[in-house]
Simulated assay, not measured.
Amino acid sequence: MQFAESVVQGRMVVAAGGQALGNVETLSIDSETWKIDFIQVKLSSEAADLFGVYWNYFHAGRIYVPTRLVHSVSDTVLLSVTIDELREVLAQDAASATT
């Protein structure tokens, strides 16, 4: 069973190349292992364009980033991959989820 928690809500998420993606909205936590599997990122308009995700002032685009891609967490969440690498990982994860 998965549930969401907003402990680190609002922290900026930055890709390895220095590009800001947006802000952490929630954490996806497995209730059996208490492991954080994903962070939900509320994308900025620029990042939404890069990911091809719908965004407007009333509906911000969101993506789920696997925690295995998180390099460090402080005032910001720094990813260990660039935006291009993140797009590839998300596409691969989506493809494996559908099969």
Rank of each mutant, 00 (worst) to 15 (best):
D37T: 10
L90N: 10
D37G: 00
S31K: 14
L50N: 06
A48E: 10
E46K: 15
K35L: 04
E5P: 01
S31E: 13
D49A: 06
H71I: 04
E85H: 09
K35H: 04
T98F: 07
I83Q: 10
S72G: 09
M1S: 10
Q40H: 08
L43S: 11
W34D: 12
E5T: 07
M12W: 03
S72Y: 04
E5I: 13
G22S: 01
S72R: 12
K35E: 05
I63K: 04
G52Q: 03
T26Q: 10
V65R: 02
Q92A: 07
T99F: 12
S45A: 15
F3D: 14
L43H: 02
A16Y: 03
G18Q: 10
V41R: 01
R87H: 12
A20H: 04
V77P: 03
F3R: 15
N56M: 05
M1R: 09
M1F: 07
A16V: 02
L90H: 14
E32V: 06
S31H: 09
R11Q: 08
A16D: 04
W34Y: 10
Y54I: 08
L86D: 01
L27H: 10
S80N: 14
K35P: 00
N23C: 14
H59T: 05
T67V: 15
T98V: 11
F51Q: 12
V7L: 11
S74A: 13
T26R: 13
F51M: 13
R68L: 09
S72A: 15
G10Q: 13
V73N: 01
R11K: 15
